[in-house]
């Protein structure tokens, strides 16, 4: 296997609050191969976005990376000085935010924002950067980019602004793009276009994508592999087809069961009882065990570590037992 673009090992992110230290991310490990799209799913508060912020080095106090390592093409980036990390942001790792209506500075034209970003990272003259900005706008599907480049963000619709945001994220040809819920704030009719656009542009450039979302439909259509997160941990990670069609972890099973299907019978959707624990009250052992229908004694004591199983990694004791049985 080629060297992964991004390699995260045992990442821990904590938030120091008056009521104690909250572990937002607790021992997360995953790799993203060049050109691969990794979907990251989970409920709100599962740590999806925090993982993205940690990778791009934008965890703000009182948050901090408390352990583990993040490597970009083998080079460690989680402990870089701020100035070195700034050079990586936008240049080698691009980011797309959730809400295009608020991601762009209202006081500058989209051209000014593009040119500024391009010239921060690439040694181009103002004219060359503008040329490049126009090309990028054309590529992300903005009609009449020569004219629109001098427009202000408020003169663009939400979908068009997200296209501008994508152009901004891609303007220095990054190796990795982190898309944090890129379609959540958009009209349903526009969502598919934007996802297709991200996927096409990144495929053309060989850019790897970390796609954070809670929309399973988006994941199923776009991602190569998917990581299911729960309470700051990865419950299951593997090829998207397997995880969606035959999930192993009981939480993943519940999550996939909760997706309404068009051709399926009109049965009731599966519901996972209870709700995700607050960060201040993560239960010992497996964080999911109080809600798990298949939990047994060991689950409340022992924290499961990721097990290789059917080409994926799943953090659940059920499969440890199975392994033990199979071995005996």
């Amino acid at each position: 296997m080629t060297q992964p673009v991004l390699s995260v090992r045992d990442l821990k992110v904590e938030f120091v609050t008056r009521r104690g230290v909250l572990k937002a991310i607790d021992g997360v490990s995953f790799d993203i191969a060049p050109g691969e799209v990794l979907g990251v799913v989970g409920e709100s508060g599962a740590g999806k976005s925090v993982t993205g912020s940690a990778v791009i080095g934008l965890i703000e106090p009182p948050g901090r990376i408390a352990g583990g390592e993040i490597r970009l093409k083998g080079e460690r980036i989680d402990n870089l000085p701020p100035e070195a990390m700034r050079r990586i942001r936008g240049k080698r790792i691009g980011m797309i935010f959730q809400d295009p209506l608020t991601s762009l500075n209202p006081l500058y034209t989209v051209g000014e924002q593009l040119v500024e970003t391009i010239r921060t990272h690439l040694p181009l003259s103002a004219g060359q950067a503008r040329r490049r900005a126009i090309d990028l706008l054309a590529e992300v599907g903005i009609p009449a980019p020569e004219r629109r480049i001098d427009g202000y963000p408020h003169e663009f619709s939400g979908g068009m602004r997200q296209r501008v945001v994508i152009a901004l994220a891609l303007c220095a040809e990054p190796e990795l793009v982190i898309a944090d819920e890129p379609t959540t704030a958009l009209d349903v009719s526009v969502q598919a276009q934007i996802i297709t656009l991200i996927k096409r542009l990144c495929a053309e450039r060989g850019t790897a994508v970390m796609l954070v979302t809670h929309d399973m439909g988006v994941i199923a259509e776009t991602a190569d592999r998917v990581a299911v997160m729960y309470s700051g941990r990865i419950a299951e990670i593997g090829p998207v087809r397997d995880v969606v069609k035959r999930p192993l972890h009981p939480y993943a099973v519940g999550l996939m069961g909760a997706i309404p299907s068009l051709e399926g019978q009109a049965d009731r959707l599966v519901q996972i009882r209870g709700s995700m624990p607050r960060l201040s009250a993560i239960p010992p052992g497996c964080a999911f065990h109080p809600r798990c229908e298949r939990a047994f004694a060991r689950c409340s004591v022992d924290r499961p570590s990721p097990l290789d199983r059917d080409g994926r990694k799943v953090a659940c004791h059920l499969y440890d037992e199975a392994q033990a049985e199979a071995a005996s």
Binding site: L58, M95, F97, D99, E116, L168
Partner: peptide, 15 residues
């Protein structure tokens, strides 16, 4: 958000 996005774009602190 646009300041957060400006940071994610790697702009200098000064800018």
């Amino acid at each position: 958000d646009y300041i957060k996005f400006a940071r994610a774009r790697g702009l200098t602190r000064r800018a």
